[in-house]
Simulated assay, not measured.
Amino acid sequence: MTLTVRDVRPDVPADTEGFARVRRLALPYILFTSDSVRHNTLHTHPDARYRPLVAEEDGEIVGTAQVLMAYDSSAPDQGLLNIYVRPDRAGRGAGTLLLRTAEEYLASLDATKVFSWVLDEPAHRAFAERHGYRAGRSAHFLRLDLAGGGLPPLAPTPPGVELRAAVEFADDPRPLFELDAETLQDEPGDLDLEPRDYDDWLTSTWNHPLLNRELTMAACVDGRPVAFTVAYTDGDGRYSTAMTGTARAHRGRGLAKLAKLHSLHRARAAGVTDAFTGNDTGNDPMIAINKWLGYEFCATEVRHARELG
Rank of each mutant, 00 (worst) to 15 (best):
residue 98 L to H: 07
residue 104 E to R: 02
residue 31 L to N: 04
residue 140 H to G: 09
residue 63 G to C: 00
residue 120 D to N: 08
residue 116 S to T: 10
residue 162 E to L: 03
residue 189 G to F: 15
residue 234 D to W: 09
residue 233 T to A: 05
residue 8 V to C: 05
residue 186 D to K: 14
residue 251 R to C: 13
residue 183 T to L: 04
residue 180 D to A: 10
residue 281 T to G: 13
residue 143 R to D: 11
residue 78 Q to A: 14
residue 115 F to T: 09
residue 190 D to P: 14
residue 168 E to D: 12
residue 119 L to H: 09
residue 219 A to H: 01
residue 297 F to K: 14
residue 47 D to Q: 05
residue 160 G to Q: 03
residue 187 E to V: 15
residue 43 H to F: 10
residue 216 T to G: 02
residue 35 D to R: 06
residue 189 G to M: 15
residue 228 F to K: 14
residue 160 G to I: 08
residue 155 A to S: 03
residue 297 F to Q: 10
residue 81 L to K: 02
residue 127 F to P: 02
residue 225 P to Y: 11
residue 292 W to N: 01
residue 27 L to R: 08
residue 103 E to D: 01
residue 299 A to T: 04
residue 61 I to A: 00
residue 84 Y to K: 01
residue 118 V to D: 07
residue 209 P to D: 13
residue 143 R to Y: 05
residue 187 E to L: 15
residue 304 H to V: 07
residue 169 F to T: 08
residue 31 L to F: 03
residue 63 G to N: 01
residue 140 H to N: 04
residue 220 C to G: 13
residue 142 L to A: 14
residue 167 V to R: 13
residue 46 P to N: 02
residue 70 A to C: 14
residue 219 A to G: 09
residue 70 A to Q: 09
residue 278 G to Q: 10
residue 27 L to A: 10
residue 56 E to N: 11
residue 231 A to D: 11
residue 145 D to S: 06
residue 203 T to W: 08
residue 176 L to D: 09
residue 220 C to F: 10
residue 151 L to Y: 02
residue 111 A to D: 08
residue 155 A to Q: 07
residue 257 K to D: 14
residue 171 D to I: 00
residue 174 R to E: 02
residue 78 Q to V: 15
residue 131 H to D: 06
residue 101 T to D: 06
residue 137 R to V: 09
residue 149 G to T: 03
residue 184 L to M: 11
residue 283 N to K: 12
residue 8 V to F: 10
residue 41 T to E: 01
residue 274 D to V: 03
residue 204 S to H: 15
residue 27 L to C: 11
residue 216 T to N: 03
residue 7 D to A: 10
